[in-house]
Amino acid sequence: MGPIDHLVTSGTFSLDGGTWDVDNNVWIVGDDREVFVIDAAHDADKIAEAVGGRTVKAVVCTHAHDDHVNQAPALADRFSAPILLNPAEKVLWDMTWPDRQPDGELADGQVITAGGIELRVLQTPGHSPGSSCLYSAELGTVFSGDTLFQGGPGATGRSYSNFDTIIESIRTTLLTLPGATTVRTGHGDATSIGDEAPHLEEWIAKGS
């Protein structure tokens, strides 16, 4: 097993009275002893199978839209692991899990470590109030949740999201990372900072 394992799970995303079918990227980061699960989506059994016999240091949530957290408690309970989430996501978390709160917080600049891999928390609000990305300089990778995709920023058309805020987060936080940094997204294909950076002005023009 490499430092990054990847699986795609399928289910639904619901907000503002609508429901959509979605495929989510679930990322498992660490070594052959201990890992983080990033964004526990849709299929707890499939994720647990990918974890195998390893210790889960934490179930890390980039944000609290239901498609990214709907299996977080199940996996946390199965592996006796804490759920970590930025506290600004509480309004969204409570829509899915009103009776179960996260066990710990993600804060900008915080460093969490599993299997010798350090992930630095980058606070990137916009898609949601407390969206977080996770950056590993050693792996040359940022796990961007739904903040940055191949081809542009995450959606900001629904409640608790803001286009100007997401653009500011991408411009000041993500696009300052090295251009070769791989962007491993919450949905769809990976990209790189260098591939996305030149398009910032286009996105701004489209969004304004």
Rank of each mutant, 00 (worst) to 15 (best):
L85Y: 04
G126P: 03
S80G: 06
I47L: 02
F163A: 14
M1F: 15
V111E: 14
I166R: 07
S159I: 13
D16V: 02
S14M: 02
R158N: 05
D31Q: 05
I193H: 08
A155M: 05
L119G: 03
L139Q: 03
L134R: 06
P102L: 07
G130V: 01
D39H: 13
E34Y: 07
G2E: 15
T172F: 02
V51N: 01
S10Y: 07
G145S: 06
T181S: 03
C133R: 00
A81F: 10
S10M: 00
T113K: 09
V142R: 06
R33P: 13
P153N: 13
G207P: 08
S169W: 00
V183K: 00
T173M: 11
T12A: 14
L134C: 12
I47W: 00
L148D: 05
V56K: 04
F13Q: 12
E105Q: 12
F36Y: 09
L148M: 13
R33I: 15
L148I: 11
G30M: 01
P125Y: 14
T182C: 11
G151V: 08
V22R: 03
S128V: 05
I166H: 06
G116T: 04
S80P: 01
A190D: 15
K46F: 11
L92T: 04
D16N: 07
G30T: 03
L92N: 07
V59R: 02
Q123W: 15
G179M: 07
V121E: 03
F149N: 10
A76T: 06
R78V: 01
I112C: 04
W93Q: 07
G179D: 14
P153D: 12
R184Y: 10
G145Q: 03
G18W: 06
V29I: 15
G109D: 06
L139H: 09
A74P: 05
V37T: 03
I83Q: 03
D32K: 12
